[in-house]
Nucleic acid binder design. Sequence first.
DNA 1: AGGGGCTATATGACCGAGCACATCTTGCGG
DNA 2: CCGCAAGATGTGCTCGGTCATATAGCCCCT
Lengths: 337, 337
Amino acid sequence: MTTPKRRLPVMADVAKEAGVSHQTVSRVLNDHPNVRPDTRARVEEAITRLGYRRNLVARALVTKRSRTLGVVSFDTTLYGPASTIYGIEQAARTAGYFISIVSLKSIDAGSVRDAIDYLAEQGVDGVVVVAPQRSAGRALENLPPGMPAVAVEGTHSADVSVVCIDQIEGARLATRHLLELGHETVWHVSGPADWLETEGRIEGWRAALEEAGRPVPEPLAGDWSPRAGYEAGKSLAAMDGVTAVFAGNDQMALGVLRALSEAGVRVPDQISVVGFDDIPESEFFSPPLTTVRQDFDVVGRHCIEVLLRQIDLGSATYERLVVPPGFVVRSSTSPAR
Amino acid sequence: MTTPKRRLPVMADVAKEAGVSHQTVSRVLNDHPNVRPDTRARVEEAITRLGYRRNLVARALVTKRSRTLGVVSFDTTLYGPASTIYGIEQAARTAGYFISIVSLKSIDAGSVRDAIDYLAEQGVDGVVVVAPQRSAGRALENLPPGMPAVAVEGTHSADVSVVCIDQIEGARLATRHLLELGHETVWHVSGPADWLETEGRIEGWRAALEEAGRPVPEPLAGDWSPRAGYEAGKSLAAMDGVTAVFAGNDQMALGVLRALSEAGVRVPDQISVVGFDDIPESEFFSPPLTTVRQDFDVVGRHCIEVLLRQIDLGSATYERLVVPPGFVVRSSTSPAR
DNA sequence: AGGGGCTATATGACCGAGCACATCTTGCGG
DNA sequence: CCGCAAGATGTGCTCGGTCATATAGCCCCT
């Protein structure tokens, strides 16, 4: 009944209601110290009475800070990006920032550029790019001027901060585990070319093999999908002497397991399999999957920390934050017979 | 070298550069018809020369339209919400809208309210709420005035538009499939209480059973997680006469499969299992899972369509859009022996 | 009592666009 | 060659906040 007009109340309305100036209302809203307690109370009461909310758009216009962070990501449907973004969102909101998401389907440098430009136009205070392809990384090399940015799993070279999980170490963990179980060597089903994760995992796997003086078989190329793992698994089942397989991620490991099971190969008795990611399902695969654990949540949180630091300092100091991977042993690996 | 100041170019700069007024620049930017071609060209050239981008924040302030849509969702890590949001994002971006996401960990009406308020403050033009719990639905019953909203899987009663997949029909499909294979009855591992999907799936399952005049066993309560399915599967394996199980989602089905396998029960020979969702992994479960297919992508797209319609019309006409589920038969079901 | 140094509050400009309206062109019919 | 309507462009205000600065009130000290 106290709404003669449809229009939402603005600061001036609150000011009038409380018998002060709009500036005082602003002070109350921004927790300025120099406001007498009773004035503050009066203003606060007026605010709730009118149901006033401050207009963040107007605020952003003058402060030139939107308190919104952009996230550009490749296929947010995948477990990794989805979890990372979840971590980002939680951390950002706690810090009082909004998250604006652009999710890409194709991943050339051009579309990443476009996405960043798009977000820049909207006035985001910074961007985190979750697009761990080599080509996507290139888009970060000439950002809009003055735009703070952090990349997840980015290249080492670019002029941006990077937060990543140690892929090489993860792959080494997986490979060593299999080697220590007595396997002569380890086959690898890799992710798609151009992905930094793919490269890192191949590198770590190869390194572990070479350190142990073992032969390095040709990796089987996949694309992260269970289907690709399935195809690779069929090839592996048909080959001689395969006793241990390191799949580039858990979904491909699932496909491998399926193919081996269809081929009548028992896991882990005849072939041991390890994955990468530790998705929630992998504990219940048949058999439960031994895998490298990635803590996407902390990656997300670190991204926000790094980004906010960059925004607040205004300076261009590029950090590189490496999160160590974990390793969880379940039932898909066993000693070589 | 043409940057005497750090400040980004604004409309006035472009205007000066092109020798016109800021209003003409605005016209060019907004594709107004009444601009002479050569003027337009001159302005466009000035824009690229200066690298001008329009400030959407300022634009939003005066137009009172931010071209941003809010999404509040429960646990964006789950496949369903993640896929829905993906669809939403794609559709929104094509329509020229940004997406601002708030992802909730706990899901009471209060936190949904808070999230919506938070987004309202930011000035979103509308919200889609992906929080299919009964309690979350209640938060939609008194939205900020004039805020267009659409709920995914929302309650029927509330004064909001709803886009949903026909859960009852999906469950019925699953149950009938098992009945038609000759199973006497079908056990059900349900989702967590309070979820609308849980209720719908129980309802459809029960209806199919009753229509066929079959006994309706007590459902086993789960929580969508593979672990819950695993526990339920252990119980099921210990029971007599169980030949068919309808799991509330694919992850729980995975847990059931695992438990049965551990108990030495062969699927589908001894027990048939069907899931719900059709996550990308389920085709490669052991055995490949027969399941109800939900097209989250089209749900997301429909959300945006409905929401934009509501925004453009400004009117409060509430729609209810029901997407039919699919059904995909794989190898986890077979005729009763 | 007077003045210095605070604190508390008010005033007006400003951020960068769009909108309404005014003004100046242009084209065309009579 | 004039008049008039439509087309093209410019002017000034507005959106709803914050910032810089001015001003009023207060306490304390000499």
